[in-house]
């Protein structure tokens, strides 16, 4: 049987995030209720300052925010937090539990983090069933740690994810109150258009 054949030739490339504090990152995207229409596809309420929008030089995240440890801006590693929505989270399975296992094999890989076994909790997000994974990662060389919450949810046939990370020196306490920003962000996040993949399989693309 003959098939189309797709060949790719590659080597591993890393990516990184770059902070950029624009004056008004949501100019022209604000709705009357204060939410933002992002890329004509996502509607959400951005987390309040000191959270700020991150400009990304990689495709792992669709939208991401960053803040420092306390009120100072910008934060300085290892005292910083990120909050993000990813259309293509690490991993490939379309099963929530399998996907979280695959995800943590890659997540923060470049930061050399060893994750504790995540605690999993069924929840709801984006109008359907979701899986919340909480863990702490340890960067043992530099003596840092990272609090992680990831919420895996469905969008059509695929799995998407919301991330929260909070870095701290190993001997400092995490600020769990910042998780509220993730909860609010996820709770107000909706899609205003079908995804690329939904259009692709319904012959709209």
């Amino acid at each position: 049987m003959k098939y189309l054949l797709l060949i790719f030739i590659s080597f591993l490339l890393g990516g990184c995030l770059a902070a950029e504090p624009p004056a008004d990152p949501f100019a022209g995207m604000r709705m009357a209720d204060g939410s933002v229409l992002w890329e004509d596809e996502y509607r959400f309420t951005p987390p309040p300052p000191p959270w700020q929008l991150l400009t990304l030089d990689e495709e792992d995240y669709s939208v991401a925010f960053f803040r420092g440890c306390r009120k100072e801006e910008p934060g300085n590693y290892p005292c910083e937090s990120t909050l993000a929505y990813a259309e293509e989270p690490f991993g490939y399975s379309r099963d929530l539990e399998e996907r979280q296992e695959e995800f943590f094999r890659r997540f923060l890989w470049a930061a050399r983090v060893d994750f504790e076994k995540p605690s999993l909790k069924k929840t709801r997000a984006l109008g359907g069933e979701a899986l919340q994974a909480d863990t702490v990662g340890h960067e043992r060389v530099l003596g840092h740690k990272v609090l992680v919450r990831v919420i895996f949810a469905h969008r059509g046939e695929r799995i998407v994810a919301f991330y929260f990370t909070q870095w701290r020196p190993a001997d400092e306490e995490f600020d769990q109150s910042q998780l509220k920003a993730l909860e609010n962000f996820v709770g107000g996040f909706t899609f205003t258009a079908p995804s690329f993949y939904e259009k692709l399989v319904t012959r709209q693309d």
């Binding site: 098939y3 189309l4 060949i7 790719f8 590659s10």
Partner: peptide, 9 residues
Amino acid sequence: FNARVAGVS
């Protein structure tokens, strides 16, 4: 889409 993928290095 009746396609197959292979990686080569």
